[in-house]
Simulated scan of single mutants.
Amino acid sequence: MRIDIEDLHVSYTGRTVVAGAHLIAAPGEITGLVGPNGSGKSTLLRTVYRHLRPAAGRVLLDGTDLRELSPARSARHIAALPQERGGDFELTVREVVAMGRTPYKRAFAGEDATDRDIVAQALADVGMAGHSGRRFTELSGGERQRVLLARAFAQQADVLVLDEPTNHLDIRHQVELLALLRGRRRTTLVSLHDLNAAASVCDRLHVLHDGRVVASGPPRAVLTPALLAEVFGVRAAVVEHPLTGDPLIAFDHREPAERGSAKDTPAVLEA
């Protein structure tokens, strides 16, 4: 399924956080949101999974405005891994993952064999099959992250919306997670801080700055030294990764770039 975001505006307490955003997440592609802290990435994603209501604009799922769908129907199509994790669950790992089956269950309905198989596979996919009986509150930050990702997988939605899914994960589990996302080929909208990971795993990128999408397109076209200087305020060279051939960003950690106005950065547009 395809996500289209059209002229999206989102405000908090009278302050505009996302201003006129246009972007797409194409079927089967991984679409990345990148940008500095406070650029509006999480706010935009919260609007897609309906935690927030836009002040203006629309989020379309295969051409249908999400506001026309019931919460249960929307949840069968869109699964989310928010950055805000909520309170500590006084549940076992397996019980947390089983929550992903809720959109498919009638009130007070119990699990069936299909549910059990889906939950078991989701736990195996994130490497947590051996922890199903542990309390969620006993887990490390990285383990909790993987359990919540398994919950999203168990939802078996057409679209995954993931806000910093590699947060708290060590490098091995980051690599495994990103490889897992590529292998699933679901429509995926993901925010990432790691620009090299974004360049490697994403089919297209949308760069946010001050609530606006300032560049969109394939990673190789978007992640230029000029954009990195203007939007992120860093000096960097973009070279070819010696192992994969993907764009590889080499940052100058000694000195920041001279930063101008991001409004002057030309957008790279892709249909």
Results as ranks from 00 to 15, higher is better:
residue 89 F to K: 05
residue 133 G to W: 02
residue 162 L to H: 01
residue 168 H to P: 05
residue 134 R to S: 06
residue 129 A to Y: 10
residue 93 V to M: 00
residue 175 V to T: 10
residue 145 Q to W: 04
residue 101 R to A: 09
residue 80 A to S: 15
residue 105 K to V: 06
residue 163 D to L: 09
residue 146 R to K: 15
residue 117 D to I: 11
residue 146 R to L: 15
residue 125 D to S: 07
residue 122 A to S: 15
residue 154 A to E: 11
residue 101 R to I: 11
residue 83 Q to M: 12
residue 122 A to H: 01
residue 81 L to C: 06
residue 92 T to D: 12
residue 143 E to G: 02
residue 117 D to S: 15
residue 112 D to W: 12
residue 143 E to P: 06
residue 138 E to A: 07
residue 85 R to M: 11
residue 109 A to I: 09
residue 114 T to L: 14
residue 167 N to W: 09
residue 104 Y to S: 04
residue 158 D to P: 07
residue 140 S to Y: 03
residue 159 V to T: 12
residue 125 D to G: 05
residue 108 F to M: 13
residue 130 G to D: 15
residue 157 A to V: 07
residue 120 A to V: 05
residue 115 D to M: 13
residue 99 M to K: 03
residue 83 Q to N: 13
residue 124 A to N: 11
residue 133 G to P: 05
residue 121 Q to G: 01
residue 171 I to L: 15
residue 115 D to W: 03
residue 125 D to E: 15
residue 96 V to E: 01
residue 149 L to K: 01
residue 89 F to C: 03
residue 134 R to E: 03
residue 96 V to K: 02
residue 109 A to P: 03
residue 111 E to F: 14
residue 154 A to P: 06
residue 169 L to E: 08
residue 98 A to E: 08
residue 150 A to M: 04
residue 124 A to D: 14
residue 151 R to E: 03
residue 150 A to R: 06
residue 86 G to T: 12
residue 112 D to A: 09
residue 104 Y to L: 08
residue 172 R to D: 13
residue 133 G to R: 08
residue 84 E to R: 12
residue 100 G to F: 13
residue 104 Y to R: 11
residue 103 P to V: 09
residue 161 V to D: 05
residue 169 L to P: 04
residue 101 R to C: 05
residue 126 V to S: 00
residue 159 V to E: 02
residue 131 H to I: 02
residue 96 V to T: 05
residue 85 R to W: 07
residue 129 A to M: 08
residue 132 S to Q: 10
residue 132 S to M: 08
residue 84 E to D: 14
residue 79 A to Y: 06
residue 120 A to G: 14
residue 166 T to I: 13
residue 122 A to V: 06
residue 88 D to K: 06
residue 95 E to K: 03
residue 112 D to N: 15
residue 171 I to E: 07
residue 120 A to H: 02
residue 109 A to V: 06
residue 129 A to T: 10
residue 149 L to Y: 05
residue 92 T to G: 15
residue 105 K to G: 08
residue 130 G to F: 01
residue 144 R to V: 00
residue 134 R to P: 00
residue 125 D to R: 11
residue 89 F to V: 02
residue 97 V to R: 01
residue 129 A to L: 10
residue 160 L to T: 10
residue 102 T to G: 04
residue 102 T to R: 14
residue 102 T to I: 09
residue 136 F to K: 04
residue 128 M to R: 00
residue 175 V to M: 15
residue 124 A to V: 07
residue 93 V to R: 00
residue 83 Q to Y: 13
residue 150 A to F: 02
residue 147 V to S: 00
residue 140 S to E: 07
residue 113 A to P: 05
residue 111 E to D: 15
residue 121 Q to V: 01
residue 136 F to G: 00
residue 172 R to N: 14
residue 89 F to D: 01
residue 105 K to N: 10
residue 118 I to R: 01
residue 135 R to V: 00
residue 167 N to Y: 10
residue 113 A to Q: 13
residue 147 V to N: 01
residue 81 L to M: 07
residue 114 T to S: 14
residue 146 R to C: 04
residue 102 T to S: 14
residue 85 R to P: 04
residue 128 M to W: 06
residue 84 E to Y: 06
residue 159 V to D: 04
residue 121 Q to H: 04
residue 142 G to R: 08
residue 83 Q to C: 12
residue 159 V to C: 08
residue 165 P to T: 08
residue 80 A to L: 03
residue 161 V to G: 01
residue 80 A to V: 07
residue 147 V to M: 01
residue 123 L to E: 02
residue 157 A to Q: 03
residue 169 L to N: 02
residue 161 V to Y: 10
